[in-house]
Design a protein around this nucleic acid. Sequence first.
DNA 1: CTGAAAGCGCTTACAG
DNA 2: CTGAAAGCGCTTACAG
Lengths: 342, 342
Amino acid sequence: MSPRVRISDVARRAGVAPSTVSAVLNEVSGARVKDSTRERVRQAADELGYAPNALARGLRTRRSGTLAFISDVIATTPYAGQLIQGAQDTAWAAGHVLMVVNTGGDPAIESRALAVLRQQQVAGVLWATMSHRVVPAPVPPHGTPLVLLDAQDGTGAVPSVIPDEEAGARAAVAELADHGHRRIGFVLDREDSPASDGRTAGYRAALAERGLPVEDALVARARSCSAGGEEAAGVLLDRPHPPTAIFAFTDQMAVGVYHAAAARGLRIPEDLSVVGFDDLAVLAQELRPGLSSIALPHYAMGQTAAATLLRLVEDPHAEVPAVQRVRTRVVRRGSVGPAPSA
Amino acid sequence: MSPRVRISDVARRAGVAPSTVSAVLNEVSGARVKDSTRERVRQAADELGYAPNALARGLRTRRSGTLAFISDVIATTPYAGQLIQGAQDTAWAAGHVLMVVNTGGDPAIESRALAVLRQQQVAGVLWATMSHRVVPAPVPPHGTPLVLLDAQDGTGAVPSVIPDEEAGARAAVAELADHGHRRIGFVLDREDSPASDGRTAGYRAALAERGLPVEDALVARARSCSAGGEEAAGVLLDRPHPPTAIFAFTDQMAVGVYHAAAARGLRIPEDLSVVGFDDLAVLAQELRPGLSSIALPHYAMGQTAAATLLRLVEDPHAEVPAVQRVRTRVVRRGSVGPAPSA
DNA sequence: CTGAAAGCGCTTACAG
DNA sequence: CTGAAAGCGCTTACAG
C-alpha cells in the first residue's frame, strides 16, 4: 500500500487538531479559525498532497458523492455517449461522479445493478433507455431519487426527460413546406411507441396548420431499417399522386428512401426531398447528397436529467416537472430542395 | 432518510454479535459458526433486506470495489460503448463497479479526474483512448494500478491492450487475394500512428508473402474521411495499371472509394472489390453493396484490459504482459468479388 | 463456537 | 478561536 496521507497527518504538520483541518478545508461556514491558522493548514495539506478519503467522508456524512447511470443498451448506438457525457458534465460540476452500469435490458442484471449501487450508497439513479420507450419504472432503494432518461414509465410517477418528438416532426415538415412542398410523405416504423406516436402527431399537426394534405396515402409503415424505408418509400412513390418530399422516421429509414428514389431514377433533391430523424452523423454525412435530419438533443437531455436528479438529491421533496421535453434541432445538409414546379 | 438496515440490526434479530453476522455473510473461511446459527443469520438478513454499506466496508478493508474508466472522447463514436461494456462485464463479474469519466482530452480535466477518483479510492484505473494512439502515460495515485486501453505510452512501462492492427490488415489482404486479386491497392490516412504503421506493415507483409506486387503506385494517402478516401482512390484508379481491389484504412474512407468507383462507372464488386476497417456497422450495412470490413474487437479489448487491471489490483507485483494485441475479425458483406478476368 | 474491542478516516456537535 | 470525543457501519484480530 502507498503511504496515503490522512487528515491526522495534516493536523500534526500544521500543529492543530484534525477537526480544525476539516473545518478549514471544507470551508465550514460557522467555523472561527484565525487566518494564520488557515494558512498553515492549507500549506500543510498542499505539502503533503492531502486528498480526503471519500469513503470515510461518505460514511460519516451519508453522502457518497456518486450517482448511478443505468442503461439498457449502450453498446450499439453512437448516441449513448452524448447522453452520458451530458449527465457526467453536470454531475461533475456538482462534485459527483457517475457509476455506470449497462444491463443489456436483462431484468436480472437490472435488479442486481440496483442492489450493488445501493450498497455503493449512490445518491441518486439515472435510468436511461437508448431509444424513447415506455418502461416499467424500476424500483430503486427506498429513499433514493430516480430520474428516467429517454424513457417514461406508464404512470408518470417518476420524473422523466425525453426528446420533444412532436416538435421535431413539426420542424421536419416545416423544413420541407418552406421549400414549397405540398405533398409530403411520411415513412415510419411499425411499432407503437412514444416516438412514433409523437412524430406522427407532429407530422399531421404541421400539415394541417399549413392547409397541406393529410392523407393516409401519404403515410407508409415498415420495419425500422433501411430495407423497411426502401419498401415504404417505394409504396408512396409508386402511387398515382406521389409525394415530392418524404419525412423519414429515422436516418436509417431515410437511407432506404434514397435507394427507392435511385431505383426509380429520381434524383435527390431535384426530384425528391428527404428529411431524416436522429442525425446519425456517421451515416447522414456520408450519403450523397448529405441527409438533412432532426437531431435529438442527447447531450442536453443528459444534462437536464442529471440536474433534475441533483435537485432531488439535495431535497427529496423538491418540486420537479414530471416530464421534461427537450427541443430537437434541424441539421441541414443537402437532401432538401425546392419542390419540382410540376 | 430511509430506514437503512445495518449489520447491528441483523445481529440483534438473529441474537448474535455483528462480528458473527459479518463472518457468516462474508463466508469467512476460518470462521467456526454452527450451521443453525448461520441459518438464523441468513434468515434475519433476508427478512430485513440487509445489504452491507460498501463505504463502511471499503473504509475498513481499504478496498472500494470500484474501478475508474477514464476516456478521452466517448461522445462521437459508436465503439466506445463496446469498450466500456467489455470492461464493465469483467469488472462486474469480479464484484467491481466502474466509475466513468470522459475528459474530452482536456489535460486539466484529466488530472482532476485522476484526483477525484483517487479520493473515491478506486482500486485501479483504465485509461482509454478512442482510437489507437500513443499517449503520455498518465500518473495515477501512487500505488494504483493502471492499464491503457486502445492506447500505448511511449515507454512501454504501462501495460496496454490494443488491437492487432497488423493481423487485421493481413486479413484484409487475404480476403482480397483469396478472391484472385493480384493488384491490391491501399488507401490510408496521412497521420503516422500505430494504426497506420501497423496496417501498412500488415498490408505489405501479406502481399510479399503471396508474391503479389508491393508498389508505391498502389498506395495513396489522404485525409481520414470519405472525401479523402474518394480522392486517394481516384488517384489509384486513374493510374495506368489500376488495382482491381482496394483496402481502405477505415470504413469512412471506404465510402469514398465507393464514390470514386461510381464516378468512373466501376461497379462493386464486379469491377472493383473493397475491404474497409473498423466495421462501423451503421455505415457498412447501409452501403450498396454492404461493405466487408475488419472488425476491431472492442468488447474483447475492454474485457482483456479489465482482467489485466484486476490481476494487478489483486497483486501489484503480478506479471502482466506489457502489450496485449487482440485479434480482429473479418466481417463479410458484399463488396468483395472475384478478380475481373481482365 | 461466539462476542467484545479496536480501528478504518473522516465530520459534527460540544466543551472550553 | 481551537481541541477532545463520539460515531458513521463495517471487519479483523483476539479473548474466552
